[in-house]
């Protein structure tokens, strides 16, 4: 009987620890939603910032983030998908394949600020792009590349081998087989992975800090060589660098909420699509 009681206590401790995580996550989201909601109106979302961001809206930051993320996806999606196709469909065991895998794992572990340093060294200085959308997008694309490769590989591996064999046995070439009989069934999963990548790219601050982000730039960019504001950096600036940080509290919460919403919408879409396609394609 005694043993049972002590087991029960331990069970409850474990349960409390697990739910504490849930509570904290809920608390963060709740806090930001409640305090940010009053700011969430058209003037704020569609307006330009005034007085170094203490008044007005955050349109340039939203647009900047959209540009950066689109650029990053434009580079990382094809690269990542092609890498995954090579790894699942063509690669044979050997040194080259091991090296690629090692590189992907390494890339996934590189600290985001190091991506920033690297992006600055390569794109901003070496290529002479200056702090610009193109430098920031490339830097972000390298950062999300492993995410896209790994989830694309999963999507390809989920297509049964029998479809490949069936096609090859009919005399299709390897590429015909992949193009006509593998990719159509793997594409939804591959795009789901890239949505996760988008979510990550939209929320990252450190890589854009040194490559593109502008402190205060109340206009929209006119070319890919322009600097832009970006939501996560804008939040950082308002919260820590602003001379009247306390006064602009509603602006901070509003920005945090918009950023959180964008990232969570992308993530939840990806999670939903993933379970949808898993159910749809049961082989």
């Amino acid at each position: 009987m005694n043993k049972n009681i002590s087991e029960n206590i331990i069970y409850w401790l474990i349960r409390i620890a697990a739910y504490l995580i849930v509570f904290v996550v809920g608390y963060i989201v709740f806090d930001i939603v409640i305090k940010g909601l009053p700011k969430l109106n058209m003037d704020f979302i569609m307006g330009f910032p005034r007085r170094s961001g203490s008044e007005g809206g955050i349109l340039p930051a939203i647009v900047g983030t959209i540009y950066l993320v689109s650029g990053a996806i434009l580079v990382a999606l094809p690269l990542g998908m092609f890498s995954a196709i090579y790894l699942t469909e063509y690669a044979r065991q050997g040194r080259f394949t091991r090296m690629i895998r090692l590189a992907i794992v390494t890339l996934a572990g590189v600290p985001s600020i190091v991506f920033g340093l690297f992006g600055m060294g390569l794109f901003v200085i070496f290529f002479g792009f200056g702090a610009s959308i193109i430098a920031g997008s490339f830097t972000l694309s390298f950062m999300i590349l492993p995410t896209i490769i790994v989830s694309s590989e999963e999507a390809l591996q989920a297509v049964p081998q029998s479809l490949r064999e069936g096609s090859l046995a009919l005399g299709a070439t390897q590429w015909q087989t992949i193009y006509k009989n593998v990719l159509p069934y793997a594409l939804p999963g591959m795009f789901t992975g890239s949505i996760l990548g988008i979510g990550r790219a939209a929320g990252e601050t450190a890589p854009i800090l040194l490559t593109v982000a502008a402190f205060y730039l109340p206009r929209l960019p006119s070319s890919i060589f322009d600097q832009v504001m970006a939501l996560p950096y804008h939040l950082y600036v308002l919260a820590t660098q602003h001379p009247e940080a306390d006064k602009v509290l509603p602006m901070q919460y509003g920005t945090a909420l918009v950023l959180l919403l964008i990232v969570l919408i992308f993530n939840l879409t990806a999670i939903f699509l993933r379970s949808y396609f898993r159910k749809k394609y049961k082989w």
Partner: peptide, 13 residues
């Protein structure tokens, strides 16, 4: 070659 030699698999695919 594979055009000349057709194949039917154990599990219909």
């Amino acid at each position: 070659l594979r055009k000349r030699v057709g194949m039917v698999f154990q599990k219909s695919n």
